[in-house]
């Protein structure tokens, strides 16, 4: 101790200061990462409607939501939604949906993309909607062939005791360049953009946190086509918050 020029008090102060500094560096990194984790395009709230609907003898309030799925950022701009920075296929205008609990949700998805084949043909089925079907340009389907699909919208969550299970999976009919087999591309009335208007309804239960993603392999050039847009947060995947 003799040769040290530091008093015990100074030493303790420097220790506390250094500890506080280190902790604040770590906290700073945390805050930064947390900031990067914010929803890229904010939250998308379902619009509540005045009327109610009776499903299986129970009265549900109604709410609706409209999304689009775009082949690239150029298409996204044409629809008014500003695409994210990579020129990737993406859902918009946001990937974080907020839905009211115990509500009859009607979702409309405008699909503008082409497609090839599903990895897992299982996801050609319509699952979890009220009618068991999806309405594509006015026609009801309970499933689509594995090679006629552009994307799917698949909602799921972690099974746990604190929230109700919720599973919805809907295949979106792909847009054909030429109409050789009768799948006619539609002129979307809202966007004046060629594509399909896909509508389906499902019931939310209690409040909870869920995720959704696309099960159609659309991360081009990557193994199993599930890299790139498929593995980047906010493009073909997102969150669903059901609020009480």
């Amino acid at each position: 101790m003799a040769k040290s020029n530091m008093t015990a008090g100074k030493r303790a102060a420097s220790a506390i200061l250094a500890t506080a500094l280190s902790i604040s560096v770590v906290v700073g990194v945390g805050v930064t990462l947390n900031k990067f984790s914010a929803d890229p395009n904010g939250k998308l709230f379902a619009t509540k409607e005045a009327d109610t609907i009776n499903v299986d003898g129970k009265e549900y309030p109604k709410a609706s939501l409209t999304m689009g799925v775009y082949a690239d950022t150029e298409q996204a701009h044409a629809d008014g939604f500003t695409g994210m920075k990579n020129d990737w296929v993406q859902y918009g205008p946001s990937n974080h949906l907020v839905l009211p609990a115990n509500t009859y949700i009607t979702m409309t998805i405008h699909g503008y993309d082409g497609g090839e084949e599903l990895n897992n043909p299982f996801f050609g089925k319509v699952m979890g909607t009220v009618s068991g079907t999806v309405n594509i340009d006015g026609v009801e389907y309970d499933s689509l062939p594995y090679n006629k699909i552009q994307h799917t919208w698949t909602l799921h969550g972690i099974p746990q005791s604190t929230q109700d299970p919720l599973f919805v999976s809907v295949p979106l009919l792909r847009v054909e360049e030429d109409d050789e087999i009768g799948w006619v591309p539609t002129e979307d009335p809202i966007t004046n953009f060629k594509g399909h208007t896909i509508t389906f309804s499902f019931l939310t239960k209690g409040a909870g946190e869920y995720v959704w993603n696309c099960e159609f392999p659309c991360g081009d050039d990557t193994y199993a086509k599930f890299g790139a847009a498929m593995s980047g947060y906010g493009y073909m995947s997102g969150k669903v918050t059901v609020t009480a």
């Binding site: 799921h156 969550g157 995720v211 993603n213 498929m230």
Partner: peptide, 11 residues
């Protein structure tokens, strides 16, 4: 298994 490994659960 990638992005949503944590959510690859069902009952």
């Amino acid at each position: 298994c990638g992005l949503y490994h944590a959510y690859m659960e069902t009952t």
